[in-house]
Every structure is written in C-alpha cells, then in structure tokens.
C-alpha cells in the first residue's frame, strides 16, 4: 500500500492505495468523485477523462500512485455551485447528451480543448474529441455544443 496526495477540485486529499489502483478507481471509490465513469478500462472510450495538472487525461490509463502530488479536476468541479459552466449549458441547449455516461469525460476533453482553441472549425472539434466515444448522439450535437461554447467564450473575451 502506498500513501499519496491528490488535490481534487481544489481540495487536498491524502489516501492509501494499492500500487495497482487506477487513478479513476481512486477518484471514484476512495474519494467518492463518481462523475468520471469507467467504460472500457483500456483508454479507448474516454468516459473517465479528467484533468491532471491542466491536461485532459484518461484516468483509467494511469495508476493513482503516478498521480501522487497532482492537481486533478473532475466534472464535479466544472459548475460553480448551481451555475453550470458554459460548456455544460451548451451541451444542454444543443442536446449534446442522451444517456450521459460519456458526458463527464466528453466535457473535460472539450473544456480543456477550448482553453487553447481560438474559433475552432468543426473539423478541429471533431479531432479534439476523437478519443471520447459516444454511442447515443452520433457526435453532431456534441460538435454543435462545443462550437457554440467557443462562440460564447469568444464573445465574452
């Protein structure tokens, strides 16, 4: 067992994990951040995507011990209490989710992408979310939602 420290959505946690414990498992089962979902355990589906030190990563592809000392942001940290973040609002307005299982990961990938993207094309948006699978929406409305968020953020800058 190993002792590690994770700062999740601004809150510092000390926890003890087995060396083989995946980051997603530590977040979900040890710390009760249940937003990130496990869809494949092979890094393919992206439902477990969180931000580690500013980068969107698939939290099933690394061990919790590898994230020792890291700053983690999860979907639970996107909204400001009851006020949804722009990306969340746009996913709702554009019907960018159905069953919602891929949504936490999709939001984290999209939100991270939009930090650096300036007026992205639909093709660039599709490239950005290529590693996040959605079986419900066919992606069209997800691309709409990300495009609309980019427009919204562009206007307020």
């Amino acid at each position: 067992m190993r002792e590690i420290t994770l700062t999740v959505n601004g809150q510092r946690h000390e926890l003890t994990v087995e060396p083989r414990t995946l980051l997603v498992t530590a977040l979900r089962e040890e710390l009760d951040y249940r937003g990130a979902n496990v869809g494949c355990e092979t890094g393919r589906c992206g439902a477990c995507t969180v931000r580690q030190d500013g980068d969107a990563i698939k939290s099933c592809t690394r061990f919790a011990v590898q994230a020792d000392g890291a700053t983690i942001e999860t979907v639970e940290g996107l909204a400001d209490d009851d006020e949804l973040a722009p990306i969340q609002e746009q996913f709702q307005e554009n019907h960018g989710l159905q069953c919602g299982y891929c949504t936490p990961g999709m939001l984290m990938t999209a939100d991270t992408f939009l930090r650096d993207a300036d007026d992205p094309s639909r093709e660039e948006i599709r490239d950005a979310i290529e590693g996040n699978l959605c079986r419900c929406t066919g992606y069209h409305n997800i691309v709409d939602a990300i495009e609309a968020t980019a427009d919204q953020l562009g206007e307020t800058e």
């Binding site: 951040y33 937003g35 990130a36 979902n37 979907v75 639970e76 996107l78 949504t103 939001l107």
Partner: peptide
C-alpha cells in the same frame, strides 16, 4: 440533463 452534466447522476 443537469445531474448528468454535473457528474451527479447515479448509475
């Protein structure tokens, strides 16, 4: 949508 978007839904 809101609980799903906030990661609060219970699967």
């Amino acid at each position: 949508d809101v609980p799903l978007l906030k990661g609060e839904a219970t699967y």
